[in-house]
Every structure is written in structure tokens, then in C-alpha cells.
């Protein structure tokens, strides 16, 4: 592959305080969704649905990795991690995280995100849409446990479920 134009790192998010002294760090959610869903549209047209889902999952996972490194590094206790994650997700307006099941020994988790950034309030569609979130959660879980995870959104607002529910299972070799 030829030399890349861009490799993501946290500092490439830039100095927001410096750059937006008047507008600050927040923007309207429509803008975020606009960008995510036009990407999806164009990707699907160019690469098909399956490949697009893969791209979104990978992107979410990369985001989860970096998010973890910059915010949660050093935490070893799962409950402490969950608690901080709940606070951060709420404070940053990403969603309300609730744990339904946490089986650390067997690496099996069920969690829900209400008022989700990506999909809460979306009109009903035929399938779950929060593939980026799946990847994001997988990135966080893998960073925390050091094990590979498969995350699946089993219920989604946009399939009429009013909350996004994810299962996260450790991938056994």
C-alpha cells in the first residue's frame, strides 16, 4: 500500500479550546448524524452493505481503543471502569449506559445504551444500524480486558426497540 495521508491519533483531534473560542466543543447532533449516515450511504453504494458494516465496525473499534487509552488507562477494577464509563458517556452526551449482565469470568456481557447518539429517535428500519457503536464497545472491552471481543447489537431503536442492547462475548480461540 502506498504511503498513507492520515493515521489517526488523539492529538490530531486538535486544540478545540484554541480553535473554537466562541463556539466551544459542542455541535448539533443532526450534524453528527448527517455525516455518519451520508458516509454510510456513499459507502454502501460503492462497497455494498456488508463491507460498509465492516468499515463502520472497524472505525468504531479504532475509536474505542483511543477513547480507552486517553480516558480510562490505568483502571484495573471492572466496576470502577463501568462507573467511569457511565459518567463519561453521559457527560459527553453519547448515551446512558446500563449493565444488564456482567460475567467477567466467562467474558459475557449484556449492556444497553439509551438515548444513543447514533440511533435514538430514528425512524423504524428493517435492521440494527449501530454498527459503529458495536465496534466502539468492542474497542473499549478489548482494551480493558486484553481479550478479543465480538459485540452485536441485538435490539436497536431503529428496529422499534426503544433502546439499543448489545451483547459482548469474548472470542474463544
Amino acid at each position: 500500500m502506498a504511503e498513507r495521508k492520515y493515521v489517526f491519533s488523539w492529538d490530531l483531534l486538535g486544540d478545540i479550546a484554541l480553535g473554537r473560542p466562541n463556539l466551544g466543543p459542542n455541535t448539533r447532533l443532526e450534524v453528527y448524524r448527517l455525516m455518519q449516515f451520508v458516509f454510510r450511504d456513499v459507502f454502501e453504494r460503492n462497497y455494498g452493505t456488508e463491507k460498509t458494516d465492516e468499515i463502520f465496525y472497524d472505525a468504531g473499534k479504532l475509536a474505542g481503543d483511543h477513547f480507552y487509552k486517553n480516558i480510562f488507562a490505568g483502571i484495573t477494577d471492572f466496576n470502577e471502569f463501568v462507573k467511569k464509563l457511565q459518567i463519561v458517556l453521559k457527560d459527553m452526551g453519547i448515551g446512558i449506559l446500563r449493565i444488564e449482565k456482567a460475567d467477567l469470568e466467562n467474558g459475557s456481557f449484556v449492556l444497553t445504551v439509551s438515548e444513543d447518539l447514533d440511533c435514538s429517535g430514528l425512524p423504524e428500519m428493517d435492521s440494527e444500524i449501530c454498527v459503529y457503536d458495536e465496534g466502539f464497545i468492542a474497542g473499549l472491552m478489548e482494551s480493558f480486558t486484553g481479550k478479543r471481543f465480538k459485540v452485536k447489537e441485538v435490539d436497536c431503536w431503529c428496529t422499534g426497540d426503544r433502546t439499543c442492547r448489545f451483547t459482548a462475548e469474548v472470542v474463544k480461540d
Partner: peptide
């Protein structure tokens, strides 16, 4: 079940499971 009825039930289930946890 999908849709409003199923969705509301899932929300309730998720809340109660979270409460248990």
C-alpha cells in the same frame, strides 16, 4: 417482537436487569 410494544418491554427488561446488576 419488534416495534413499540416489544420495544417498551425491552426497555423495562433492560431497566430491571440493570437494577439487578
Amino acid at each position: 417482537v419488534k416495534g413499540f410494544l416489544g420495544g417498551s418491554l425491552k426497555m423495562l427488561q433492560a431497566h430491571l436487569n440493570h437494577l439487578t446488576w
